[in-house]
Design a protein around this nucleic acid. Structure first.
Lengths: 211, 211
DNA sequence: ACCTGAACACCGTTCAAGT
DNA sequence: ACCTGAACACCGTTCAAGT
């Protein structure tokens, strides 16, 4: 067949289709052959646009972390900045739970990710945190986000789920379990984030900029 | 050849060898064929001991979460309990960073993991936390641990690393970078854990058991 | 430049066959 | 019961060939 008059593929189409397949069937089900099939093309064709499968996954990770709101630091309020950023980041990853491991353990270049990290670090330093603390605080919130979204809920705290569900006897129907598991994860993240920010106030009083 | 006089394999040997290969070469490099080769056996032989590769990985995850110290709750002190458990859990996973994704996203049965979750939940409830809060608090600490150990440090906060290293100009030698990255992760986790526990004190005052 | 077809070196898993 | 050899249906990636 050879080169088509107009290209059949482009990087964005490949990336978006990969994310759609990951969302639908899980990360393990994504193969270059399956992705190509979905695009009506041969697997080898993908290599005209991405050098390796890992580069496709990096593009997906980059997409997920794009447009995460870091504007909360603008007023110099590090608490609002952290809460808004943490919740936005959590929401972005929660929308694609099957893809979170790609974000968590990615090894490649991730421009959008770096831009986000830079905005957060700058916001914290601008609000008076020493750079070393800015690094650790951004890391802590990132840990909460990654942890909350990368552990499928049934995976170890099943007994906790049961205890939790016991508080809401009307929600124990099977068809609501997944929905409820997601709520537990979100509630746990929210409690953790708020407590973390609250606890940081004491630290800030000790090491933050005087003003 | 057929059945040997004395078995060549057993579940523990397979599990321990799998962990050793993961530590040495990474999770992606572990295949049933490579594992069998390391054990001087054919790949098919492994299936006499584990039904699937996922079951081998579950056994590895179970091993990593075995013997994590939850004794800190014994005295009814939820703060000491959380700090001791969180640090022990973090240390256990930090010792095998390549294997953390297996713990984070495992889907199978994990007896030791459930035992640990049960001890923590019981400890929190025993110290006066309502069960619903016990679930969320245990979740928050778990998120910090999983997040801190599952994101290889260079993966996004490289600029932060640089800022951090700028504070320690004598540590920027290449051969100390990995060591320093691990320290940043540990410091960030420690700050996050302490701030989280501190922030929970206010919550406890509002919802904890009166005594 | 972009896509194809075929190939290479791998996978996880199954299963009849051996002892 | 436990291990082997061969097979099945997959992988990621490469590359000469086509337009």
């Amino acid at each position: 067949m050879g080169r088509p008059r107009t290209p059949l593929l482009n990087r964005e189409l490949i990336r978006d289709t990969a994310l759609r397949l990951i969302d639908a069937d899980g990360l393990a089900a994504l193969s270059m052959r399956r992705l190509a099939q979905e695009l009506g093309v041969q697997a080898a064709s993908l290599y005209s646009h991405y050098p390796t499968k890992d580069d496709v996954l990096d593009a997906v990770a980059n997409l997920l972390t794009a447009d995460v709101d870091t504007s909360g630091f603008a007023g110099g309020d590090w608490r609002a900045g952290l809460l808004i950023w943490g919740r936005a980041y959590h929401a972005a990853l929660s929308a694609h739970p099957n893809a979170v491991p790609v974000v968590a353990s990615g090894t490649g270049r991730r421009e959008r990710f770096l831009a986000m990290a830079d905005a957060v670090h700058g916001g914290l330093v601008g609000a008076g945190w020493p750079p070393r603390y800015a690094t650790m605080i951004a890391g802590s919130v990132k840990y909460l986000v990654i942890g909350a979204t990368s552990t499928p809920f049934g995976s170890g705290f099943a007994d906790d789920v049961q205890v939790y569900l016991d508080r809401y006897p009307n929600l124990t129907q099977a068809h609501r379990l997944a929905e409820q598991a997601e709520r537990i994860d979100t509630d746990s993240f929210e409690l953790g984030l708020e407590a973390l920010v609250r606890g940081l106030e004491d630290v800030y009083a000790a090491v933050g900029r005087q003003r």
